[in-house]
Amino acid sequence: MTTITFTKGHGTGNDFVLITDPDGALDLTPDIVRFLCDRRFGVGADGVIRAVRSNAIGEGAAILAEEPEAEWFMDYRNADGSTAEMCGNGIRVYAHYLISEGLVSPERNDTLPIGTRAGVRDVLVGAAGYTVDLGRWRLGKERLVAATGLEVARPGLGIEVGNPHVVTVLADETELDGLQLESTPTFEPVPEDGANAEFVVPADPFLKNGVAHIRMRVFERGVGETQSCGTGAAASALAFRHWGGEQMPNSWSVTVPGGRLGVRMFATEEGEHVSLSGPAELVYRGEIELP
């Protein structure tokens, strides 16, 4: 039996098992991931994040070519054992974990480059949390979205933020609360690689001090309904702004079941980027025997 040390962490209730494997020695199989994420027989989490050096994982070569200072790679796995490109809440928790474990030592207001399967993402270390530049986003296809609790399928807008999302606006909070996300929402046409499904409504008031406020629930691909999805919050704000037109602001507050996240769109030389800000917490540390 192999015994590993782990840390449990979360970002607005989106929870993760974090393990340090700098040289990539652990064979992190889908079965092991499913075991660790099992809420009855394992630790329990929405996903597993392995801290591995970029030069010790196959995807790391492209990362180091893009940014030689991106020493650490976020090897993220969904609860069902599948790999994922990126996780907006996860990368903030991962940055906090690297600092807490003494693997990196940035000063406050320093930017920490982290490798992911979606490329390098820069995380700003702040006094009240972490902000990650999710990079350029891309408008995807429109799809019909069906979910238990909705009488008819609704139009959804595809948004790519390093990983795929389909965002659907509902009529009101009653409809949002009535969703039964124990069942997997379906898309028509079906996305080739699947997608996270976000359901969103405007808050009341919608605009306050130049910031738009929305409320969101999410069904994450490979996980199920979660308390929060960082990239989903960004995708929801981007979709809402797209529908609203030029009068929409670039600063957004997104309320999720596990708390609140900040989203901001800003111009860069290579095109518009979107950032995500919010808290990151480490809950406890332990040891577990792998099957």
Results as ranks from 00 to 15, higher is better:
Thr7Ser: 07
Val218Tyr: 12
Pro249Trp: 04
Gly11Thr: 08
Cys229Lys: 07
Val123Ile: 09
Glu142Tyr: 05
Glu59Met: 14
Asp172Ser: 01
His10Ser: 02
Ala235Ser: 06
Pro205Cys: 09
Pro155Asn: 06
Ser275Trp: 13
Val274Pro: 09
Thr184Ser: 15
Glu289Gly: 11
Ser275Val: 13
Ala25Thr: 14
Pro249Asn: 05
Val167Ala: 01
Gly178Asn: 11
Glu246Tyr: 05
Cys229Ala: 06
Trp252Glu: 08
Leu36Ala: 01
Arg138Cys: 13
Asp204His: 09
Cys37Asp: 00
Glu281Lys: 13
Asp75Thr: 07
Gly259Cys: 05
Thr186Gln: 09
Arg39Leu: 04
Cys229Trp: 05
Asn163Pro: 01
Asp172Val: 01
Gly232Tyr: 01
Tyr94Gly: 11
Ala195Gln: 12
Leu261Ala: 09
Phe16Leu: 03
Arg221His: 06
Pro113His: 11
Thr168Glu: 05
Ser277Glu: 15
Pro30Ala: 00
Pro279Leu: 14
Arg285Gly: 10
Gln247Asp: 09
Arg121Glu: 05
Thr184Gln: 15
Leu157Ala: 01
Glu67Asp: 12
Arg50Gln: 09
Val263Asn: 10
Thr3Val: 15
Arg34Leu: 00
Asp46Phe: 00
Phe35Lys: 01
Ile63Gln: 05
Leu207Phe: 15
Ala233Cys: 07
Phe41Pro: 02
Asn250Ile: 03
Val161Ala: 01
Ile214Ala: 12
Leu134Phe: 08
Thr186Asn: 10
Val161Thr: 10
Ala267Asp: 12
Ala212Cys: 15
Leu36Lys: 00
Glu107Gly: 15
Asp46Cys: 00
Ala212His: 13
Val256Pro: 08
Gly88Trp: 00
Asp204Asn: 12
Gly149Phe: 08
Ile91Val: 15
Leu28Asp: 03
Gly271Thr: 04
Pro257Gly: 09
Gly271Asn: 04
Glu269Ser: 13
Ser236Leu: 06
Leu282Ala: 10
Val169Asp: 07
Asp15Trp: 02
Thr226Ser: 05
Val283Tyr: 09
Glu188Thr: 14
Arg92Ala: 04
Trp243Met: 12
Phe206Val: 15
Gly24Ile: 01
Ile32Arg: 03
Ile114Met: 12
Leu36Asn: 00
Leu18Ser: 04
Val43Tyr: 04
Leu150His: 00
Val93Gly: 08
Pro189Ser: 07
Ala51Pro: 05
Gly222Ala: 03
Asn163Leu: 00
Ser183Ile: 15
Glu66Phe: 10
Thr174Gly: 13
Ala233Glu: 04
Pro185Lys: 02
Leu290Thr: 04
Ser236Met: 06
Ile19Pro: 01
Asn163Ile: 03
Asp27Val: 11
Ser275Gln: 14
Ile114Leu: 14
Ala95Asn: 11
Phe35Gly: 01
His242Pro: 07
Thr131Trp: 10
Val48Ser: 02
Val167Glu: 02
Gly13Phe: 05
Gly115Val: 13
Val223Leu: 03
Ala153Glu: 03
Leu181Trp: 04
Thr29Cys: 02
Ala195Pro: 11
Gly158His: 02
Asp27Arg: 13
Ser251Gln: 14
Met265Gly: 11
Phe16Lys: 03
Val93Ala: 11
Thr168Ala: 06
Val256Met: 12
Glu67Val: 06
Glu220Tyr: 02
Asp204Cys: 10
Arg217Asn: 14
Leu112Asp: 08
Thr29Phe: 02
Glu246Ile: 10
Glu101Ile: 08
Leu207Lys: 07
Thr7Val: 11
Ala62Tyr: 08
Ile32Met: 00
Ile91Trp: 05
